[in-house]
Design a protein around this nucleic acid. Structure first.
Lengths: 212, 212, 212, 212
DNA sequence: GATGAATGAGCATTCATTCAT
DNA sequence: TATGAATGAATGCTCATTCAT
């Protein structure tokens, strides 16, 4: 009985989350009515508030739940990587593939989650933080093992990696998802590794790079 | 008289924009009341609608106006650059400096402008587009003149450059602007040019870069 | 133009107040919808909030406005009284007559105003206070001029006078206003003046009165 | 087993009433949540509805229960009174003392019970009715035995007695219970007996009293 | 009897926008 | 042009009550 109840409860929780994902991706967070999310989840309006504190909490929870799956997947990928460069390649691949496979979440992540609401931003930040740490770990590891520059500024590089990936996904969503996002991974990995100057570097680039 | 009137009109326009910049940075776009913006600009509520179509238009116009100044500054910088690498360095420097000098606009740009409202996003996109074109121009030029890799994927690289800069500014705003944003420019330029592997590249990196 | 606008504004104010009086007496304060009050006043919902801060403020303002008229009437009556006893008689008469003539307000006053909401209670108290002061003035005057006992406990007597009047009105409202409230005035005045023992007093009463 | 069960049931009933008294006095009736009353009583939310029909019924039942004890006490007092005047003194004393000793109930009685809800008002009225009858009995007896005026208008006098007591308690509660309520009894009894004019009466008062 | 998860009705308030003056 | 009073749409959340277990 306890087990059954727990299961039913967990199922309701997931049902509400799934309904929220659908409705928010469709109408945007602001226009998404809690009552409609409830209806699509097959529960009464008030029931949503037995599982989530508020509409904001619903959005943050949705992100958290989905993100945990992504993080687990990412950790699997990273564990298999022998070098930091491989780890980076895997990270790029996983990031792009994850959102390419979940268009609804891509919309939510790239558009809806960028709310000005401090409440939401704080929630997002907390969820995102471990991911940024993973990136930093890969970079630090690469700086140590010689995959990357030994004097790599990890904090700066972390912003480049995440910013680049994020911008790629945003552009893809904004374009109406008209091309293959996951297909960008190899090119992107190379670009992040060698920069604009490319694998060989270039005299002009090197000169500028020293001075700034 | 016509001239005088035109001047008065232009002044009102600017006054409203300035009030909007202040109020939005303070309270956020959603909570910024048109009536308060009007009051701070010294005009009646209805008057705002003689100069702007809507509250959304006010936000987009603010962005456009401020952005035009930035674009003009950028063009000056780019004109002086002899090489694409120098142009890139100038671009990075100008981008970071512009927002570092205008904290209000930085908040508006990185936080408030990320509204889910399609109306706004379209406006932003239109204003931002020339900037992305400038970046692409620099990159294409660098690919031609040998500053950058000859086979550079300009569309991808454009996202890296913009995404990285954007992420740097966002992180800075979110941190409460506790460090020197403009000071990141040299390091960032180098990073964009040579990537994680650094000026010399590395065998491991090169290997991975080829495969991805 | 200013005059006209001021008039229109004052008329709207009164119209909303009158609609509120009607609707609240009919459905009770809690069930009275602001939207319905607005509709019955012939204005849009939001307009109510141009004239009143909140629904609570609407209730308190209604009481204040109506009460001011009553207070003015009362002051006229008191001015004509030669003795404190006459003043008391006038006060009783005016109190009962005022509510007998305004059944809607009687309902509002005796029932709806007794909200537990501290916000409202405070507002009521502030409005009622001058009336209680008037009663105290009459009593103090009577204690001086010999109309009443020279050692009258004014604070206690004030509660008796107001409490008695209030209870009479409440009972009348609760009874469905089936009898002539104003007609109770003479008997009530005598009762307040001479107490249960009546004009002559009585030995038993006197004995008890001394001991308590 | 039946006895035991009955006892357990009665205990639960009392526990819920006590929790209700506490919670309502603390937060007011409107804000008092049934779920919290249940929790404080150590039962599940639904259980409250096995003992009471509704939240309103809970309030009325609370009043009834507490009032019965008061009524029993009052009857004891009245039984000992030899004259109606003594009975009146006892009644005043008991009324004030009862509420002075039970601050929680005083708040509930003077503030929370004054709900506009007709449901509640009817319940209150029913419970209060026997008390008003007791007052009327005392007055009628006094009119017969010469303690009070022979031509006393009992219905009117009843309102004076109850209204005065009620107003005294309300003022005391509203003042934050800063003075000794029970101590008012002797003065109040005298006032009710002899009225504003005091034990001796006065010519001016007498004159006015006749005319009204 | 007891539980407590689920239900779903109900509504004040804000504020962008309009338009008569 | 400028005003600013008036408009009215739009919705998250609470909590008394129910009922399957």
């Amino acid at each position: 009985m306890t087990a059954k109840a727990a299961t039913a409860s967990a199922e309701r929780y997931q049902a509400i989350l799934e309904a929220a994902e659908r409705v928010i991706a469709e109408s945007g967070f602001a226009r998404a009515q809690v009552s409609r999310i409830a209806r699509e989840a097959g529960v009464a309006g008030g029931t949503v508030y037995l599982y989530f504190e508020s509409k904001n909490d619903l959005l943050v929870s949705l992100f958290r739940e989905r993100f945990q799956a992504f993080l687990a997947e990412l950790d699997g990928t990273l564990a298999q990587a022998e070098t930091a460069a491989q780890a980076l390649a895997g990270l790029v691949r996983t990031h792009l593939a994850a959102l390419a496979e979940r268009p609804h979440m891509a919309v939510v992540t790239q558009i809806e989650l960028r709310q000005a609401d401090p409440d939401i931003r704080r929630g997002i930040q907390a969820v995102l933080s471990p991911y940024l740490d993973r990136i930093a770990d890969v970079l630090a590891r690469g700086a140590r093992d010689g995959s990357f520059a030994r004097d790599l500024d990890v904090r700066l590089a972390k912003k480049m990696v995440f910013g680049t990936l994020d911008q790629c996904v945003t552009a893809w969503v904004m374009s109406g998802r008209k091309y293959d996002l996951a297909g960008l991974a190899p090119g992107l990995t190379g670009l992040l590794l060698h920069g604009l100057a490319g694998p060989g570097g270039s005299r002009a680039a090197a000169r500028e790079g020293r001075g700034g």
